[in-house]
């Protein structure tokens, strides 16, 4: 998921950084100052949730939940995910520093898209249908992220195309688990706190 420094070509790294800055700036613009406690708290929760290891087959994988983040935070997902990636890079050594832009775009853009497409539908749906839509958001965001990781690698040179295909394949189990977990989360949220999604930032 995290691409490391040095792997991508210069133009991909710079392009990613430019897109990330634009996304973060727009996300910040959409965020009121008095919503910072709420959004900070939610992004801390997503950070902790991404440390949960879920057993899948013989191994385990950690959740990303970017579909859910997009549903909950909308455009603010950009700055929130950037901060999460920055903290992970600086304190855990995950990923790298200069590729932070590419990594942010790869994870945050699918999140924002899912939020824009599906949030209103979820707000207006009964719990069962909301859960299915949540599952679609979870699967869709991971699929998009996988494609974007693959494209970032493939754009960096033909030699990376096998690695890009491998990255795509390795996301399939993640996709299934994310879809199921996100569906269950959305189901619970709609039942327990029906205004969760309408409450969140548009």
């Amino acid at each position: 998921m995290h691409i490391v420094d040095g792997a991508l070509s210069d133009s991909v790294v710079i392009g990613g950084a430019v897109l990330a800055v634009a996304g973060i700036a727009y996300g910040l613009k959409r965020m009121d100052l008095d919503r910072i406690p709420q959004i900070g708290m939610l992004s801390a929760t997503f950070f902790i949730a991404s440390l949960i290891h879920v057993p899948v087959g013989p191994s385990s994988l950690h959740l990303i939940l970017n579909g859910l983040i997009g549903l909950a935070l909308g455009w603010t997902a950009f700055p929130a995910l950037f901060i999460a990636l920055l903290l992970q890079a600086a304190f855990f050594g995950y990923g790298g520093l200069i590729v932070l832009g590419v990594n942010t775009v790869n994870i945050a853009l699918p999140a924002v898209l899912m939020g824009l497409l599906l949030r209103q539908l979820i707000v207006n749906s009964p719990p069962k249908r909301a859960a299915i839509l949540g599952g679609i958001a979870g699967a869709g965001s991971i699929a998009l992220t996988a494609v974007m990781v693959g494209v970032s690698l493939a754009l960096s040179g033909d030699a990376f195309i096998p690695a890009a295909k491998l990255a795509l394949l390795s996301h399939i189990p993640v996709l299934v688990v994310e879809a199921l977990v996100t569906a269950a989360t959305v189901y619970l949220l709609v039942r327990v706190k029906p205004d969760f999604f309408s409450h969140a930032e548009r």
Binding site: Q38, M41, L42, A44, T45, I48, A49, I52, V54, L63, L65, L68, A72, V177, L180, V181, T182, A183, A184, T185, V186, Y187, L188, L189, V192, K193, F196, H199
Partner: peptide
């Protein structure tokens, strides 16, 4: 997987 989903959901409700 469902339990983990509910766990995340409950965590979100409480933090909100």
């Amino acid at each position: 997987w469902r339990s983990f989903g509910y766990l995340v959901g409950m965590l979100l409700v409480r933090s909100l």
